[in-house]
């Protein structure tokens, strides 16, 4: 066979180790999948998912009062105190409140902008706006929080602008933190909604108006259902990122605390990992419930 091929001008292929591996994978395509997925699945499974599961377990462990080390002993106190300790309940509710407020405010601001970009602006303007929104998205989160520290300060530009109107800057407070968080996550909300609107075909809107629908009816009954998954995708970012924040609040929130601060202080100064883990269950539970409830809308494919 080999000779015949050579005679026909076909060069025989040397059987190198690489070629053997190659032939093996052609013969058994399932192993090809296994080889591709093994490393990343192991990494994500072992490093991440296992770590998350361990975190769930740690929430029920005990800190040894004498050594300060974490001990494997079943203990429900931490999780119970989440619901009974007034500090934890207040801060949890406050955090959820801020996260909801930030998310709703961001969606309200994002809708008209995304709509303008997608349906009003010409192609050139559209690109310019898209880039202008994208660039600051990637500017460091920390820098943005810090920028608001200057803006909100007593002697800062906001005070300077508001003073003639007889108003004052909200300063470093919960309001200051909420404004800053809303600012930081806004581009994350605009972009998915814009992406969703881009997928709404123009002729569908024309059909709607040909059938006699007023602008508002078209918005409500044609556009809204189509972009709902994108709105939800945007809300996942704003909500989840606010829920876990502790840096912004420490920069512009004055002495106020959010859930993240409690988690952080339990890891650092208090060295109580089980309590930190128990507190972390709150955002995990909320996010999983939220992700599960929106899974059917297809929002997760828009992330």
């Amino acid at each position: 066979m080999k000779n015949e091929l050579s005679a026909a001008g076909v060069t025989a292929i040397a059987v190198t180790p690489a070629r053997r591996v190659s032939s093996f994978f052609y013969k058994y395509p399932k192993n090809r999948l296994r080889a591709l997925i093994a490393l990343p699945a192991l990494w994500l499974g072992l490093v991440y998912v296992a770590a998350l599961l361990m975190l769930l377990v740690t929430a029920f462990w005990t800190v040894d009062e004498f050594t300060g080390n974490t001990r494997v002993a079943l203990n429900f106190d931490n999780v119970i105190s989440l619901f009974t300790d007034p500090l934890y309940t207040t801060v949890t509710l406050r955090t959820i409140g801020i996260a909801l407020g930030v998310t709703i405010a961001d969606i309200t601001l994002a809708l008209p902008i995304a709509f303008f970009m997608s349906k009003v602006a010409g192609p050139k303007l559209k690109t310019i706006i898209a880039i202008s929104i994208l660039l600051p998205l990637w500017a460091s989160y920390l820098v943005k929080a810090y920028a608001w520290r200057s803006v909100l300060s007593d002697k800062g530009i906001l005070q300077w602008l508001l003073a003639p109107l007889g108003l004052n800057t909200p300063g470093y407070s919960l309001w200051g933190a909420a404004i800053t968080l809303g600012y930081i996550w806004l581009p994350y909300v605009i972009l998915p909604i814009y992406g969703g609107l881009e997928k709404v075909p123009g002729n569908l809107l024309e059909a709607s108006s040909d059938l006699g629908a007023k602008t508002f009816t078209t918005l409500r009954r044609v556009i809204f259902p189509m972009i709902l998954p994108s709105i939800i995708a945007g809300s996942i970012f704003a909500f989840s990122l606010t829920l876990g924040d502790y840096i912004t609040i420490s920069i512009v929130g004055g002495p106020n605390q959010m859930l993240g601060n409690l988690i952080y202080s339990n890891v650092g100064t208090a060295n109580n990992l089980p309590m930190a883990a128990a507190l972390a269950l709150v955002p995990i539970a909320i996010m999983f419930a939220y992700l599960a409830s929106v899974k059917r809308t297809g929002a997760l494919d828009n992330l």
Partner: peptide, 20 residues
């Protein structure tokens, strides 16, 4: 599994890995 590390708040990812 791929989107989870960014879908969950950074503090959860951080704490889970710190603990692990």
């Amino acid at each position: 599994m791929v989107i989870l590390p960014i879908a969950l708040p950074g503090i959860v990812t951080g704490l889970a890995l710190n603990n692990a």
